[in-house]
Nucleic acid binder design. Structure first.
Lengths: 232, 232
DNA sequence: TAGACACTCGCACACTGTACGAGTCAATCG
DNA sequence: CGATTGACTCGTACAGTGTGCGAGTGTCTA
């Protein structure tokens, strides 16, 4: 008779111990509240009530930890099933889900822009995204190109927006206070140096920054999808 | 009588001194050769044959230095004059120039993704880009949205490609050696876990990675521009 | 009971950004 | 001419970083 579940099921000692999942979760919390520069092994250890170097049993280096963290975040992105509501609304949902994920974790763009994403969740995300575009009718390389373009646009656009929001937050002002100040400065600068830009800047008076960013995101997204549609 | 050599030789030019431009240039060299993590004030000082803290006379903090550096790089991007060859080929040239700039300085995406770009060169770039889209016929917010979407896409797409290239470089292999290895691994993984992906992966055999990235970039770019065109 | 394993963690090291204050030189002033 | 000023340099120091090492602790298996 083969070893029973009981004797086999002793992977973890009863002693309460750290786990990689715990470390990763705590790191995400720290990143969300203090940003990429705010993450240090010592602060992370403190949050886990552990010694700083204990973390290194569960994770090879800080860089590795970030790779786990990033893949965990990729798991938060929803991809609609290919044949639920058509490829286009599927792609829109995917794009908005990715955007929301980035806005929830604004340090993500900086973290991913220096590494490639090949963790299991990233792979699964990419697989489901290509399935979506296959259902649209794309084949061959165009499949990868279309999915890649969508991700690139969403990350580029949302990354820039996240940077704006971070700047606002760092200023200690509310979004609209800040927007009004920037508007006033831009208008003053234009009056002196670039009078021909005055009308364009005047358009910005009293806009809601968040709504504007959302509209800007959708504009580019629809353009891209129109381009996809034209190739089917 | 003209001043003799003697008296002229006694007139030394003002003490040879550091300048912000010099610091910025040296920082860019260091970044290009060692990446964002390779830039430290001490290494930069060494490259300038100066004391580490001398740099702080010309630059408030390291973060400020990076802001100067980034704006300097924005100055490398070409924007064709609006009415030279039509907006579409103008936008294509702009996109390719920005892409080439990023590939020359692959640390750029990571550096810009955590800050907003409001230096003089960035502003000038943005102004010329919107001029280009105005000549296309865009007005109002669509002007900013279109220009923003183009930048977002180019930065997102090229940033991801730069990350791949960095990974290849770090592996010490040539691009194609590396691509072949990844191909083999992906094929093996798919055979075991996702047999339905086999054909898609088989397509990648012996592709030229650089050419593929360039094609992928152009694909997304043309899609985006098609979407722009449809709104005019 | 002995030993192997799965962890924890204090210490140490090389390195980071940068505040501070003393030092050096050229131009200017009296 | 000497004194003063202001632009610039830089050594020292400090708090903080990632992480290698090796000694410790508790639990399982033989």
């Amino acid at each position: 008779m083969r070893s029973s579940v009981w004797t086999r099921e002793r992977r973890r000692p009863p002693r309460e111990t750290l786990s990689r999942e715990q470390v990763v979760r705590a790191a995400i919390e720290l990143l969300d509240s203090e940003g990429l520069n705010g993450l240090s092994m010592r602060k992370l250890a403190e949050r886990l009530s552990a010694g700083a170097t204990s973390i290194y049993w569960h994770v090879e280096t800080k860089d590795d930890l970030l790779e786990y963290v990033i893949d965990e975040i990729y798991g938060e992105v929803d991809v609609p099933d290919a044949d639920l509501a058509g490829w286009r609304s599927g792609a829109i949902l995917l794009a908005h889900s990715l955007r929301a994920t980035i806005l929830r974790h604004p340090w993500l763009p900086e973290a991913i822009s220096s590494r490639i994403s090949i963790g299991p969740n990233a792979m699964s995300l990419s697989r489901r995204a290509t399935a979506l575009f296959r259902s649209a009718g794309f084949t061959g390389f165009d499949l990868d190109h279309a999915a890649g373009a969508l991700f690139s646009y969403v990350i580029g656009s949302t990354g820039s927006q996240a940077a704006w929001m971070a700047t606002v937050k760092a200023s200690g002002k509310t979004v609209n206070e800040w927007a009004n100040e920037v508007y006033a400065q831009a208008l003053a600068a234009a009056k002196d140096d670039y009078p021909e830009q005055k009308e364009r800047i005047a358009d910005w008076k009293d806009v809601d920054l968040l709504q504007m960013q959302s509209a800007s995101f959708s504009f580019g997204l629809e353009c891209l999808l129109d381009g996809f549609a034209a190739r089917l």
